[in-house]
């Protein structure tokens, strides 16, 4: 579905991605992990076309995305920080995104699912962080896109909302979609992801299943496996 070929990106002298090659296929939930500043967000943004790489290419269904925008009709994205225009109402924001995409949307269903019915007519500046993240979720999941990209999806969500989110994710995966997400919560990774891509200083340090990673490090838990991974890399 998505192929990343020889991708390199530097901000000024700071090399963020170094010659990255990845193949991402449908019907999988892929977790992108790595310490702060390892290039996770830059990688995601490269796929979305927000960041423009110096070298290499991203191919979406075998088509280069350079200078393209139509392919984004097939991607839903949940950005890391849910900050919206302060004076728009929730309903207006949803209408805006629907207006832009002009695609079939199941917004009403998701509004009920996350219990947002009473927030719809409030201006976004009056919402709490968690509620805003729920709105963010609605925006990301309301279209039936084959690819879903989530940047730190659980930040600010209460446990009920987190479990609803996981449920939603499973249902989407069942539809044969490609789901990519970043997180720092290892239990979530262990629970839902099929594959891990571990980035370190712009390189792919590990790619494989959760079980592979645990086995490789000889530890029983993912968290300690990753700690080992980082410590080994510095050794």
């Amino acid at each position: 579905m998505i192929r990343i070929e020889n991708l390199s990106k530097a901000y000024h002298k700071n090399q963020v991605l170094k010659d990255v090659n990845i193949k991402l296929d449908s019907n999988k939930i892929i977790a992108i992990l790595g310490p702060n500043g390892s290039g996770k967000t830059t990688l995601i943004k490269s796929i979305l076309g927000l960041v423009i790489a110096q070298e290499g290419d991203v191919k979406f269904n075998d088509q280069s995305i350079v200078g393209e925008w139509e392919y984004r009709k097939q991607i839903s994205y949940l950005p890391q920080i849910a900050r919206f225009p302060e004076n728009l109402k929730v309903l207006e924001l949803i209408a805006l995104v629907k207006d832009i995409r002009q695609q079939e949307a199941r917004d009403n269903e998701l509004i009920q699912y996350f219990g947002l019915e009473n927030e719809l007519k409030k201006p976004l500046r009056n919402l709490s962080g968690g509620t805003r993240q729920k709105v963010n979720m609605v925006l990301a999941f309301m279209f039936d896109s084959p690819v879903i990209i989530l940047d730190e999806p659980t930040v600010g969500l209460d446990p009920v909302a987190i479990s609803r989110f996981k449920e939603l994710l499973e249902r989407e995966k069942a539809k044969g979609k490609l789901i990519i997400f970043t997180t720092h919560i290892m239990s979530l990774v262990q629970e839902i992801s099929d594959e891990i891509i571990f980035l370190l200083e712009g390189d792919i340090y590990f790619q494989g299943s959760v079980q592979d990673l645990i086995n490789q490090n000889g530890s029983t838990k993912l968290e300690s496996a990753i700690t080992n991974l980082i410590e080994n890399s510095h050794a």
Binding site: L50, P79, R83
Partner: peptide, 17 residues
């Protein structure tokens, strides 16, 4: 400056910069 994050959201949508 205030709409920076929202701009990012817009940029991820199928629409020209």
């Amino acid at each position: 400056y205030n709409s920076r994050e929202f701009t990012e959201l817009l940029l991820s949508q199928p629409i020209k910069r």
